[in-house]
């Protein structure tokens, strides 16, 4: 893993760097975070997962805009956490930070069950992904249930025939890919009917 370093900008804010690449705007990290939050629109769930901690200004902006929102942040770079905690001490109780080194570790994390139960909304602030882009992209897809590996967790209650999905090429799954599998699985007609409705909505 590349070296993480920190540097103060002209406003005395601590900006994190990965292999010399800034993980937030040097000039105005707070405005950058706010701009990102405003671009999100309404957040459809009470619990969100943010993929990437970086310098943390985007997380602070998110917490600031909706005081009721539960936030979990996932990152692989543990050294970012103490700086975030010292820079935003008021968020100690609001933001839960989870460190995962391998993308598969996400399935074992405690908060993953909450993601499954609440169908949590997952946000990505790509400016802070640095050298970890492909890793974070995979984590993002696992969290939203759009990878082959994650489907068995997300669809556990439906008892679908996962094997049928192995015919799918390696791509981000959508509900369209799942509908033929649902039809071929043993599951209550009521549940299948909901999937059929969704199938019509993506036509």
């Amino acid at each position: 893993m590349a070296m993480i370093t920190f540097s103060e900008n002209h406003e005395s804010s601590l900006i994190s760097f990965e292999a010399g690449e800034a993980l937030a705007s040097l000039r105005d990290p707070r405005a950058e975070g706010l701009k990102w939050v405003y671009s999100l629109g309404a957040i459809p769930t009470s619990h969100v997962v943010v993929v990437g901690l970086g310098s943390g200004f985007h997380v602070a902006a998110l917490a600031d805009i909706d005081p009721e929102l539960q936030i979990t942040v996932v990152d692989s770079r543990e050294s970012l956490i103490p700086v975030f905690r010292s820079q935003f001490p008021e968020l100690a109780d609001r933001v839960n930070i989870v460190v995962v080194q391998e993308d598969q570790d996400i399935f074992k994390a405690d908060f993953y069950q909450e993601v499954l139960n609440q169908r949590s909304y997952v946000l990505s602030f790509r400016e802070c992904w640095g050298q970890q882009s492909s890793f974070f992209a995979q984590v993002f897809a696992h969290l939203t249930g759009r990878t082959l590996e994650s489907v068995k967790y997300h669809f556990e209650e439906f008892g679908i025939n996962i094997k049928a999905l192995y015919l799918q090429p390696n791509k981000l799954l959508s509900i369209k890919d799942l509908i033929p599998v649902v039809e071929a699985s043993v599951m209550s007609e009521e549940k299948k009917q909901i999937f059929r409705i969704l199938g019509e909505l993506v036509k």
Binding site: P44, R119, L143, L198, L201
Partner: peptide, 25 residues
């Protein structure tokens, strides 16, 4: 519109729209 957004945008859990439609039913 919300259901379709939930189905089309990658930030949404793959089953978010399912839950919404199920609750409606």
């Amino acid at each position: 519109e919300a259901f379709q957004k939930g189905l089309g945008e990658p930030a949404y859990n793959i089953l978010w729209s399912y839950t919404q439609v199920e609750n409606l039913v």
